[in-house]
Design a protein around this nucleic acid. Structure first.
Length: 586
DNA sequence: GCCGTTTTCGGCCCGACTGTTTTCAGTCG
């Protein structure tokens, strides 16, 4: 982001440090924004973005209108453009990047890294003030492994990696407690590195144990209270060790997010308290004695607020809510009473994917979870190859088959099973099966599986038309994003949310960790409009029914409570929602 | 340059580690 470069340029030019912080803050906020900053500008909402004031807003305005900003150009003047390339090297910040560019006479960014490498090999870097033989070698090494830092793990992979590391550390007898923190504890959809903390009275021993982890590629650094290693999958793991009496403070600090911590510390300062990972100091007191907190809850309480669930710690209003004691009672996994989107291997002669497990196997898994109800929602039969009669025939065949499975096993008798389908919404908004076929279902999930790149207005109209059918109750994986690989469709979500609220249509929170769709920020917006959600696994195998927890985490990040989620309700209630009795006809 | 439940002026989070210094600046989270 250009604002980060402005901040870096200001650092070289020794600008006021608070001004620099303001630019960094603005860049960070934009990075974590739910929408593109350019879209907000187009909608005239720049001034609503926290951290963007009149000055930065006007520069961005100029940037978006003319393609460049005179002010930014002035800030960058006199600085070699190669320095902004060097910033991507770990351990190289603005000052060092500038020194490298200037002293080595490297200006163009296209050849910057190659030239830097050559200079290092000619032992020129060590001659620059502030550098030495050690840092020269380090830079050369980093250049060898140079790649963009932006790579992130899926939450699913991060959970697995972290669990292994956690178990390893737990086997260290000097470690009293071990916990995984950072973005993983906040259940972010993707995770950049694994943060882990250990409580111990023998820090050195635990650090040594950590840096001896067999699945590491190398040790990045190791000091008396923290260490970092590079795992074999090329992701970083950071460890902090802490005295058990400060466990709660460390939990708070290392869970973040950064913005949450900064806001929390600023709030603490206003109340005369200085907050760190060790505890709270009274600012005015001469002694500067630290009060430790072994429990995270006690720390938040000492600041005059409720304990804040990790999923909410993104500095999006949770601190205010905690002070007013108005935090939502977030939905819990154990409150989920059923799964309304599952694919069995019953052959619906579809163009989409079949599941790999049988109806019976998936029913048995549902019983293990204690579900009261489930819905089988295989993809609709392909229309090109079937007549309407054949399609309704298939639906009735599946219905009978489910009844047969149910009646053949006593333990299944209390499990309610909806006969449903996941029906494609075609580009023109038509549903992929006929009105008559739809009426043979208990209800339908409607989803988009093609033509993702339609313009916003047409896409919105397409979705609204698809949702309009009385049998369609749920919009499946609404944005169609695939985390890390597909951005998702463009649509007027406000309009869709209004429609759903008015017509009692349910939005899915698809729990597949590659989807997590609706995204958390849209969940939060939908809830303010009174839209109800369903958290579904979209399992194509019995094992994948375990994905439910990812969906619950994602809903929690969107501030969802049990009352917002229809599949926390009992069967009678949900049956009323999904299969309302037909209105009396005169 | 931003911001406001003590402020429209006067504040602005806090600490660890590294390398190059010979007491600290730069970088990172």
């Amino acid at each position: 982001m250009i604002l980060n470069n402005v901040a870096s340029a200001y650092k070289v030019k020794k600008e006021n440090r608070f001004k620099i912080a303001a630019y960094e803050q603005a860049a960070s906020v934009i990075d974590h924004l739910s929408s593109e900053i350019r879209d907000l500008w187009e909608e005239g909402k720049l001034d609503q973005v926290p951290g963007i004031g009149p000055s930065i807003a006007s520069h961005l305005e100029e940037l978006f209108t003319k393609g460049e900003s005179a002010h930014f150009n002035k800030v960058f003047s006199g600085l070699p453009e190669s320095m902004f390339v060097f910033l991507s090297i770990p351990g190289v910040g603005p000052k060092k990047a500038y020194m490298l560019a200037k002293e080595l006479n490297i200006d163009r960014k296209s050849t910057a890294l190659a030239k830097l490498k050559k200079a290092g090999e000619n032992k020129q870097i060590r001659q620059i003030e502030g550098f030495g033989e050690g840092s020269e070698k380090e830079i050369l090494k980093r250049l060898g492994e140079y790649k963009r830092k932006e790579k992130r793990m899926s939450l699913f992979e991060a959970c697995n990696q972290a669990e292994k590391l956690r178990n390893y550390l737990k086997s260290c007898e000097k470690a009293v407690k071990v916990e995984v923190l950072g973005s993983l504890r906040r259940r972010c959809v993707s995770v950049g590195d694994i943060d882990i903390v250990a409580a111990t009275n023998e820090a050195q021993a635990v650090i040594h144990y950590f840096t001896s982890y067999p699945k590491k590629r190398k040790i990045i650094n190791a000091g008396p209270s923290k260490a970092s290693i590079l795992l074999t999958n090329n992701f970083q793991a950071d460890l902090r060790v802490i005295d058990p009496k400060s466990w709660g403070s460390m939990l708070q600090y290392f869970t973040g997010s950064k913005q949450h911590n900064i806001s929390l510390r600023e709030y603490a300062l206003k109340k005369g308290m200085s907050l760190s990972e060790y505890g709270i100091k009274k600012v005015k007191s001469q002694k500067l004695k630290i009060k430790n907190y072994s429990k995270e809850k006690d720390l938040y309480n000492a600041l005059g607020m409720e304990w804040i669930p990790p999923e909410l710690r993104e500095d999006t209003g949770e601190i205010d809510a905690a002070i007013k004691k108005e935090l939502p009672k977030l939905v819990k996994l154990k409150e989920i009473k059923g799964d309304l989107h599952m694919h069995s291997n019953f052959n619906t002669e579809t163009g989409g994917d079949l599941g790999i497990n049988s109806v019976k196997e998936m029913c048995e898994k549902a019983l293990k979870f204690g579900y009261q109800y489930i819905a089988f929602t295989e993809h609709n039969p392909s229309m090109s190859k079937h007549s309407e009669q054949q399609i309704t025939g298939l639906i009735m065949k599946k219905k009978k088959y489910i009844e047969h499975i149910k009646s053949s096993s006593k333990k299944l008798s209390n499990l309610h099973i909806f006969n449903s389908l996941e029906v494609n919404i075609l580009p023109d908004g038509q549903l992929a099966i006929s009105d008559k076929a739809l009426h043979t279902l208990d209800f339908a999930i409607a989803s988009i599986h093609s033509s993702f790149l339609m313009p916003k207005e047409a896409m919105t109209a397409r979705i609204l038309k698809g949702l309009d059918h009385p049998k369609v109750k749920i919009l499946g994986h609404p944005t169609n994003r695939m985390i890390g690989s597909r951005k998702g469709i463009e649509a007027d979500w406000e309009k869709i949310f209004d429609f759903c609220a008015k017509n009692k249509k349910i939005l899915e929170v698809n729990a597949n960790p590659k989807r997590l769709d609706l995204p958390d920020n849209l969940i939060k917006k939908a809830l303010t409009k009174g839209v109800k959600l369903a958290i579904n696994s979209d399992a194509h195998a019995a094992d994948s029914m375990n994905f439910m927890k990812f969906g619950v985490w994602n809903a929690r990040r969107g501030w969802a409570e049990a009352k917002d989620i229809i599949n926390t309700m009992n069967y009678d209630k949900i049956n009323e929602i999904l299969c309302p009795a037909a209105p009396d006809t005169e």
